[in-house]
């Protein structure tokens, strides 16, 4: 005998699990608060990444000015056993950073007055001969643009290394520089060492 299956109006639930019925409200399902926060955080993260990428690739004038100091630092620095080819490249690099003439006021290194690019490179080449190694680093940049095409930079320069006679070099100077924009390139026009301690 076959008993017919009666339609009782209940869903099939062999384990007899208790399920809570949600009364229909007629509104669309809400996103839970936690998920909302997650989406906001992800959104903020993406915006932050976007801003970071923008600043990484966007070359502001300040960055261009700082780049000149980085190049000067690379040109002046000397490693042990530097060959003549590298030295020549570095001297050329230093020359390319200066205007045709540059006002210098560096009493500690007996440099003062207006110097031509050739004089500066010549001085740099002679100076390197007395040094076994040298590192020039720049810190605490304060960059201002007093007028179009002019950048005034106040910073701390640190020189470390040793001479060929083994004497250690450890100097720090506050420097005031004026750079002028020539053909879309910032060139050194004046370098002056500020006296922090006056004997």
């Amino acid at each position: 005998m076959v008993n017919p299956i009666r339609n009782t109006g209940k869903s099939f639930n062999p384990a007899g699990r208790v399920t809570k019925k949600i009364p229909p409200t007629g509104k669309p399902p809400m996103i839970p608060d936690r998920r909302k926060v997650k989406y906001v955080l992800i959104g903020l993260g993406l915006i932050a990444i976007g801003i970071g990428i923008f600043f990484m690739f966007f070359q502001s004038e300040e960055k261009r000015v700082k780049k000149q100091f980085r190049l000067l630092s690379e040109g002046v620095s000397k490693e042990t056993g530097e060959n003549i080819f590298t030295m020549d490249q570095k001297i050329k690099k230093i020359g390319s950073l200066f205007n045709d003439t540059c006002d210098m006021a560096i009493p500690a290194h007996s440099l003062s007055g207006q110097m031509t690019r050739e004089e500066i490179t010549g001085y740099a080449a002679r100076g390197r001969l007395h040094l076994a190694e040298l590192q020039l680093t720049f810190h605490d940049f304060m960059i201002a643009f007093p007028q179009e095409g002019e950048a005034r930079v106040r910073l701390t320069a640190r020189l470390t290394g040793r001479t060929t006679t083994g004497e250690a070099i450890n100097e720090a100077h506050e420097i005031d520089c004026l750079l002028k924009k020539t053909e879309k390139k910032w060139m050194f026009n004046r370098i002056e060492v500020i006296e922090v301690l006056k004997k």
Partner: peptide, 13 residues
């Protein structure tokens, strides 16, 4: 502690 242009490099005297 004496500063130069900023505070990263200083002198102790």
């Amino acid at each position: 502690v004496i500063r130069f242009a900023g505070q990263r490099i200083t002198l102790l005297k």
